[in-house]
Amino acid sequence: MISKMKRVARSMAMAFAAAATITLTMPAGNAYAIDHVECRGGEDFLKIWSHSGGRESVDCYANRGRTDFGGWWVDKISTGNNDLIYYDANGDSVKIERWHEITFPNRPPKVNSIEIL
């Protein structure tokens, strides 16, 4: 009876050690939590001026990740301290480095989603 308990305890210890080893050696996943934030002067957020269906909008984003942009036409982008990729309705992706401001006066892209790197 005691040897059976020892085997069970040893098996449980081995299972625990294996689980701990896997947990410690596997890389942690990246948490992507892009946030739509309030635009404030002096902040280095990603800032996008856009329009769709007769409405205009100015939106700011912070933190790494990807989010839907709803197919709005983008008039201007200020990347702040963020590297950006926008994905347009034509299936193209365009990367814009941080600290850049770009305007699209004649042919604004229709953007489906944005990603802060």
Rank of each mutant, 00 (worst) to 15 (best):
Ala15Lys: 08
Ile85Gly: 01
Lys6Trp: 11
Met12Leu: 15
Glu97Phe: 06
Met5Thr: 10
Ser11Val: 01
Met12Asp: 04
Gly42Lys: 04
Ser93Leu: 00
Ala89Gln: 02
Ile48Met: 15
Lys4Cys: 05
Ile85Asn: 08
Glu101Met: 07
Met5Phe: 14
Leu84Gln: 02
Arg66Tyr: 01
Ile77Arg: 05
His36Ile: 02
Ile116Glu: 00
Trp72Met: 09
Asn106Trp: 07
Glu101Gly: 09
Asp92Gly: 10
Asn112Gln: 13
Ile114Gln: 01
Gly71His: 10
Tyr87Phe: 14
His51Leu: 00
Ala31Val: 15
Pro105Leu: 11
Ser93Ile: 00
Ile114Ala: 07
Glu56Arg: 14
Ser57Thr: 14
Asp88Asn: 15
Asp68Met: 00
Gly91Ala: 09
Tyr61Cys: 02
Asn90Ser: 12
Pro105Met: 05
Val8Cys: 00
Asn63Pro: 00
Tyr61Ala: 04
Arg107Glu: 08
Pro27Glu: 02
Ala15Ile: 13
Ser78Trp: 04
Thr21Tyr: 12
Gly71Ile: 06
Trp49Gly: 01
Pro108Tyr: 12
Arg7Ser: 07
Asn82Ile: 00
Val74Arg: 08
Asp35Phe: 04
Gly91Arg: 09
Asn106Ser: 11
Arg10Asp: 06
Arg66His: 08
Leu84Pro: 11
Ala28Gln: 14
Gly42Ser: 10
Thr21Gly: 03
Ala31Cys: 03
Gly54Thr: 11
Met26Val: 15
Arg40Thr: 01
Ile22Tyr: 13
Asp68Ser: 13
Ala31Ile: 15
Thr103Ala: 13
Cys60Ala: 13
Lys95Asp: 10
Phe69Ala: 03
Lys110Pro: 04
Arg40Lys: 15
Ser11Met: 08
Asp35Gln: 14
Ser93Thr: 09
Asp83Pro: 00
Arg55Val: 11
Asn63Val: 03
Asn106Lys: 10
Asp92Val: 02
Glu115Pro: 04
Gly70Asp: 02
Asp83Gly: 05
Val94Gly: 05
Arg55Pro: 00
Pro27Val: 06
Ala18Trp: 06
Glu115Gln: 15
Thr23Lys: 08
Ile85Glu: 12
Gly65Leu: 00
Ser50Glu: 09
Lys76Arg: 15
Ala13Glu: 06
Gly29His: 06
Arg55Gly: 04
Ser52Tyr: 11
Ile116Asn: 09
Ala31Met: 06
Glu43Pro: 03
Tyr86Asp: 06
Glu43Cys: 04
Ile2Thr: 09
Gly65Trp: 01
Met1Ser: 07
Ile34Gly: 05
Ser113Thr: 03
Ala62Trp: 01
Ser50Ile: 10
Glu97Gln: 11
Arg10Pro: 00
Ala19Tyr: 11
Gly53Ala: 14
Gly91Glu: 07
Ala62Thr: 11
Thr79Gln: 02
Asn30Ile: 14
Gly42Asn: 02
Val37Glu: 05
Asp68Val: 04
Thr21Leu: 15
Arg10Met: 05
Ala17Gln: 08
Arg55Glu: 13
Lys6Thr: 04
Gly71Asn: 14
Thr79Trp: 01
His51Met: 07
Ala62Ile: 00
